[in-house]
Simulated assay, not measured.
Amino acid sequence: MNSQSALVAGGGGFVGSHLCESLLEDDYDVFCLDNFGSGRPENLSHLTERDDFKTIEADIREPLDLPPVDEVYHLASRASPKDFQQYPVRIALTNTKGTKNLLDYAVDHDATMLFASTSEVYGDPKVHPQTESYNGNVNIRGPRGCYDESKRFGETLTVAYHNQYDLDVRTVRIFNTYGPRMRADDGRVIPNFLTQAIRGDDLTVYGDGTQTRSFCYVSDLVQGIRQIMKIDEMAGDVVNLGNDREITIKELAKTILEVSKTESGITYEPLPEDDPTRRRPDLSKSDQLFDFDPTVGLEIGLKRTIDYFEDQI
Rank of each mutant, 00 (worst) to 15 (best):
residue 74 H to V: 04
residue 163 N to H: 15
residue 166 D to G: 15
residue 237 D to M: 13
residue 103 L to D: 12
residue 225 I to F: 08
residue 176 N to I: 09
residue 4 Q to G: 09
residue 209 G to I: 05
residue 72 V to R: 00
residue 20 C to W: 00
residue 205 V to D: 07
residue 272 P to N: 05
residue 266 I to F: 10
residue 237 D to T: 12
residue 122 Y to G: 02
residue 197 A to S: 11
residue 167 L to C: 12
residue 49 E to N: 12
residue 288 Q to T: 15
residue 205 V to W: 03
residue 159 V to N: 15
residue 296 V to P: 12
residue 161 Y to I: 13
residue 93 L to I: 07
residue 21 E to W: 06
residue 290 F to G: 11
residue 241 L to A: 06
residue 227 Q to K: 14
residue 204 T to W: 03
residue 111 A to G: 08
residue 36 F to D: 00
residue 217 Y to I: 03
residue 296 V to I: 15
residue 296 V to H: 10
residue 40 R to V: 00
residue 238 V to W: 10
residue 269 E to S: 10
residue 289 L to E: 12
residue 193 F to G: 04
residue 211 Q to L: 04
residue 165 Y to L: 13
residue 162 H to P: 14
residue 119 S to Y: 11
residue 97 K to S: 14
residue 203 L to T: 07
residue 104 D to Q: 13
residue 264 S to K: 05
residue 209 G to Q: 04
residue 127 V to C: 11
residue 36 F to A: 00
residue 284 S to W: 13
residue 298 L to K: 07
residue 223 Q to V: 11
residue 19 L to D: 03
residue 39 G to Y: 02
residue 155 E to L: 06
residue 273 E to V: 12
residue 240 N to F: 08
residue 256 I to S: 08
residue 10 G to W: 04
residue 28 Y to Q: 03
residue 220 D to M: 02
residue 47 L to M: 08
residue 110 D to F: 09
residue 199 R to F: 09
residue 28 Y to A: 00
residue 126 K to M: 14
residue 203 L to A: 08
residue 5 S to R: 00
residue 26 D to Y: 09
residue 236 G to R: 11
residue 301 G to P: 11
residue 233 E to D: 15
residue 49 E to D: 14
residue 3 S to M: 11
residue 11 G to P: 06
residue 74 H to S: 07
residue 265 G to I: 07
residue 246 E to P: 06
residue 141 R to I: 11
residue 9 A to N: 03
residue 78 R to Y: 06
residue 84 F to I: 00
residue 189 V to C: 10
residue 212 T to F: 06
residue 296 V to T: 14
residue 148 D to P: 06
residue 221 L to N: 04
residue 24 L to F: 02
residue 100 K to A: 15
residue 28 Y to C: 03
residue 153 F to C: 14
residue 281 P to G: 05
residue 146 C to D: 03
residue 294 P to W: 09
residue 298 L to P: 08
residue 106 A to H: 10
residue 31 F to H: 04
residue 66 L to W: 02
residue 245 R to Q: 15
residue 235 A to W: 13
residue 15 V to L: 06
residue 53 F to L: 01
residue 190 I to F: 08
residue 193 F to M: 09
residue 175 F to L: 02
residue 196 Q to Y: 03
residue 96 T to P: 10
